[in-house]
Structures are given as C-alpha cells and as structure tokens.
C-alpha cells in the first residue's frame, strides 16, 4: 500500500521575472514501511517537494498536483488547521544543520517536552481507574533519548543546542520526530554536514527505526553513494523533474536514464581501475539556473543522447515499477515498453 502517492506535482513560483515552474510534473510513490531515497543535486528541488508535502510553502507558490494522497487523506483538500494536525502526528521532518533548527534559547529538555503528546484529561482519569501509572514526562523523554542512542541523557537534556555537537543535535531532532510515532519521517539531507562516523551512526539509527517500528522514511540526499546502501527504493530528480524511480536493485543493476548512469558512475570505488590523477566522470555543463530552465526534458542541453525530440516533455514509462521519463532510455532486450500508467 502506498503511504504517499504524489502524481504530477507542479510548483510555480512567481518571481520578478514572472512565473517560474520549479517543479515540473514530479511523481513520487512511497511504499509503506520502506526507506525511500530521493536523490538529486543541490537545487534540484528536493526540499521544495518536501515542503509542498508538509504544506509549508509560501503564499506566492502555486502548488498543483493530480494526486497528493497520504494514505487515504487527500492533502490538497485539507484546511490549514487540519494540515497542521497531520504534520505533528503523521509526518515528521528532520533537517540539515540540525543545530540551527533547535531553539537556541531553550534547553533540550523543554524542547523535547514541547513535542510530546499531551496527556489528555481522559487518559489521566483512566489511569487512575486502571491503576496503571502513566509514565512521567521525565521517563518518556529518557526513553526517547535512549531509543536514539544518546546514553548521557542528563547532560544532554540540561544543555543548550550550541553546546552540543551536530551529531547529538541530529539525534535529538530524530528523537523529537519520533516522539509521536509518525507514519512518515522526511529526512532532508540529515547528514550532509557531518563527518563520516556520525553519518554512519545516523543512518544506522534511521535504519533501526524503520526496521523496528516500520516507520516509512523519505530520505533526501545529494549523494547517491551514501544512501544507496540504505534505501529500498530510489527516485532521482533533476532540475525539478523526476527522471527515474524504482527499487534499489532495479536502479543499480539496470539504469535506463542517462542521468542515472552518470550518477552511478560517480560512485567512487577505490580499486585499481582508477589511475592516479585521472579525470573523474561528469556530465558536461551545469545545472540550469531557475530563470533559464530548458523546455521539455531539462537534461536536454547536457544529455549525451539528446536529440530534437527532447524539447517535449517525455512521458513516464513504467517497467514493472521501474518508472523512467526519457525519450531514449537504455532498454534491455527482454523489456518492452509498457506505457500503462497506474491510476
């Protein structure tokens, strides 16, 4: 069952130069209980999609989509209030540079306390009857911190954000994110600013959460290599367009889009095949800037297979769950184009 089903999401931002279509008919389908990686370079629009899901966009954005469903709820039809309720309970988000996303004037204890589900009067009443003691706030917070792997909880709780390292701050953020047992956690480049050891710790934590509590995780990243071990499904996005999407095996073993191939080739494997001071593989050119977006397939100017027909938007092709938007995909022999689209 798809937890999050987004079809043809488009975001237009009105700037001084007119309306710019920053996200162009992106589609994303997240399977419940999986870790889904959304990979794209900086500026490709990953955070925008995340914001659109949460409804945190500015007033001058126009968000349109054919479908935007969270489970059975249509996100586009919710009022602001209902949206807010969902955000705390069902979807949680963790960010890059976690220290700056914590309130610098408050101790960690009070910040975590803020997100805990409040004990309603009914529960208190019931607990008195049932003689089962409700856990005190202290207890619950301590448990949360232990869950995310912070051993010295007393020290951490009594500290301010600027006294803690990025790694601990990220764990705290994750703790706050899972406090309400959300069904989806969106992780916006959570480890981009960290060194390798902490990075491994965070990923391990996310993996554990996913395994133990079946929390779906949408992991945004700009580094194909770092998430490739972790994700069950991967979607690649280039300049606001989703180019390829599929399971990990499908993407790694049979990449069809030229961009995906380029990404895979950039994963460095330190074996003897790379000679000293040799040039690393890249696609020629740069990401187009927002006011000079190419028409049609936006990889066009840089794509090695580009031809005239690339000025129109390619239709997404679906090969057993491996979705690709390209006019000239790399096709295996025993794959035939299947243009059926799931409704």
């Amino acid at each position: 069952m798809a937890l999050l089903d987004i079809r043809n999401l488009s975001i237009d931002i009105s700037t001084a130069q007119g309306k710019v279509r920053v996200i162009d008919k992106a589609s994303l389908t997240i399977v419940d209980g999986s870790i889904h990686g959304l990979v794209g370079e900086s500026g490709s629009g990953k955070s925008l999609i995340a914001k659109a899901i949460l409804g945190l966009h500015n007033a001058n954005w126009t968000v349109t989509a054919d479908r935007m469903f969270l489970g059975a709820t249509d996100l586009t039809k919710l009022s602001a209030n209902d949206r807010r309720k969902i955000m705390g309970k069902e979807i949680a988000m963790i960010f890059q540079h976690p220290r700056s996303y914590l309130d610098p004037s408050k101790k960690i204890f009070s910040q975590i306390k803020e997100v805990l589900p409040t004990t309603s009067v009914k529960k208190l009443f019931l607990s008195k009857i049932k003689r089962v003691p409700e856990q005190s706030t202290q207890q619950r917070i301590k448990e949360l911190l232990h869950k995310v792997g912070i051993q010295n909880d007393q020290t951490v709780l009594a500290s301010y954000p600027h006294e803690l390292s990025e790694g601990i701050c990220q764990k705290v953020m994750i703790a706050m994110a899972i406090a309400n047992n959300p069904s989806l956690i969106i992780a916006d480049e959570p480890t981009t600013a960290m060194e390798a050891v902490t990075r491994a710790q965070i990923f391990r934590l996310l993996y554990k959460l996913n395994q133990l509590h079946s929390t779906t995780i949408l992991l945004l990243s700009n580094n194909f290599g770092s998430i490739s071990n972790l994700s069950d499904y991967i979607t690649l996005i280039y300049s606001g367009q989703t180019v390829e999407s599929g399971s990990y095996k499908q993407i790694i073993n049979s990449p069809m889009h030229p961009y995906t191939e380029a990404m895979i080739k950039t994963i460095l494997e330190f074996d003897e095949s790379i000679s000293h001071k040799s040039q690393l593989y890249t696609l020629p050119g740069n990401i187009p800037s927002a006011n000079q977006l190419p028409i049609g397939c936006r990889l066009g100017p840089r794509c090695p297979r580009a031809q005239r027909s690339c000025v129109t938007n390619p239709e997404p092709l679906n090969f057993k769950g491996h979705v690709i938007s390209c006019h000239f995909p790399t096709l295996d022999e025993n794959q035939h184009a299947n243009t059926s689209q799931r409704k």
Partner: peptide, 26 residues
C-alpha cells in the same frame, strides 16, 4: 526567517504558539 521557527512550523505548532514560545525570547 530562522530555521528553528521553520522547524516549529514543521512540528505542527500554530503561529500564536510559535510566537509566544520561541520567537519572543529569541
């Protein structure tokens, strides 16, 4: 404009709550 206010929005707090709890003191 700061990040922690954005995070507070993401946590689902209402504008009033954010102003009174986070913004004023900072």
């Amino acid at each position: 404009k700061s990040n922690y206010v954005k995070a507070a929005y993401a946590k689902g707090l209402s504008r009033k709550e954010i102003v009174f709890r986070h913004v004023l003191k900072n």
